[in-house]
């Protein structure tokens, strides 16, 4: 499959045109046909539409990777940063101007490997940024090396004999680090993708929306999971909706729960700083 084709999911034949939300000068996308990143991008833009976001006041930031390209295609302000560091840039943007809506699009490598530190600290600070994690279980951009999310025994170009690493569960990691909104779905569940991104943006605090997505070009091919449609089926098989009873994260045996795992109101970072600022205005000698 050749990268560079139009992503049909961004420009569907049927359904509402999202052209207003697309930066047409950047089309076509570099995503391979069948890549799930287009589904997620479309879900994000649809969420922008449904929330009536002011595009001039919105900044979509991305790391480096196939997923990190999303900002280019979004007709908002766009910042394509460095590998793993989108959230560090985002922290500066949001702290300097809290009126901006900041949405980060990051790969699983971006999030949990090179940017793991920035990720956990953003969770901890509870800064009002929505991090959309495009989890395809592999490094797409660099040609299919394993990621910290690749399940054990799975193959990649650097685990040709099977992966011996223990993977991270990104949602679980986010919760442990203190994110105040954590949810997960798959590209198979498109409606949920839009809904959860909407909820994430509306949530006042750090939101992690993890979306399990397909990379037919590498992950699918190396692990013989078939084409994009087969992979969507595979996503369905590998996941289950969260029931009402609490999940025992230790007992998951390879299957991943989906749903909103956490949604709590906690004091937000830029708010806390604003309060501190107000409290110091009359007190500090600024000379």
């Amino acid at each position: 499959m050749e990268p560079g084709a139009w992503s049909p999911l961004l420009m569907p034949k049927k359904g509402k045109s999202l052209e207003r939300y697309l930066r047409m000068s950047q089309m076509p996308t570099l995503w391979c046909p069948g890549c799930g990143h287009g589904n997620i991008a479309r879900g994000m833009l649809q969420a922008f539409d449904e929330l009536h976001l002011n595009l001039d006041q919105t900044v979509v930031i991305g790391g480096i990777g196939c997923s990190g390209r999303t900002p280019f295609y979004s007709n908002t302000n766009a910042m394509h940063t460095t590998h793993g560091r989108a959230l560090a840039f985002g922290t500066g943007i949001k702290m300097a101007n809290p009126d901006l809506t900041v949405v980060a699009t990051m790969g699983d490598g971006d999030t949990a490997a090179i940017g793991g530190n920035h990720f956990i600290h953003s969770c901890r600070r509870n800064i009002d940024i929505t991090a959309i994690v495009f989890n395809n279980s592999i490094y797409g951009m660099t040609g299919g090396q394993f990621a910290p999310t690749t399940p054990q025994d799975k193959k990649s170009s650097t685990t040709v004999y099977g992966n011996i690493d223990e993977p991270f569960d990104i949602a679980e990691l986010a919760m442990a680090a203190g994110a105040s909104f954590v949810a997960r779905t798959t590209t198979f569940d498109f409606q949920d993708t839009t809904e959860l991104i909407k909820k994430g943006i509306q949530h006042h605090g750090f939101s992690v929306v993890e979306i399990i997505t397909q990379c037919p070009t590498y992950y699918g091919k190396i692990n013989k999971l078939g084409n994009a449609v087969d992979m969507l089926e595979y996503e369905k098989d590998m996941t289950f909706p969260e029931e009402d009873e609490p999940i025992d994260w230790k007992e998951l045996s390879g299957q991943m729960p989906l749903g909103i795992f956490r949604e709590e109101q906690r004091s937000e970072y830029t708010d806390r700083y604003r309060e501190l600022r107000e409290s110091q205005k009359s007190k500090t000698d600024v000379t």
Partner: peptide, 26 residues
């Protein structure tokens, strides 16, 4: 704070300069 400015102690220096660049664009 009293000058309406912003201070953040980041998790490392990589993040620090990233935040500075982000703030400059903001």
């Amino acid at each position: 704070p009293a000058l309406d400015g912003t201070f953040v102690q980041m998790e490392d220096e990589i993040a620090s300069l990233a935040a500075v660049i982000g703030a400059s664009w903001a």
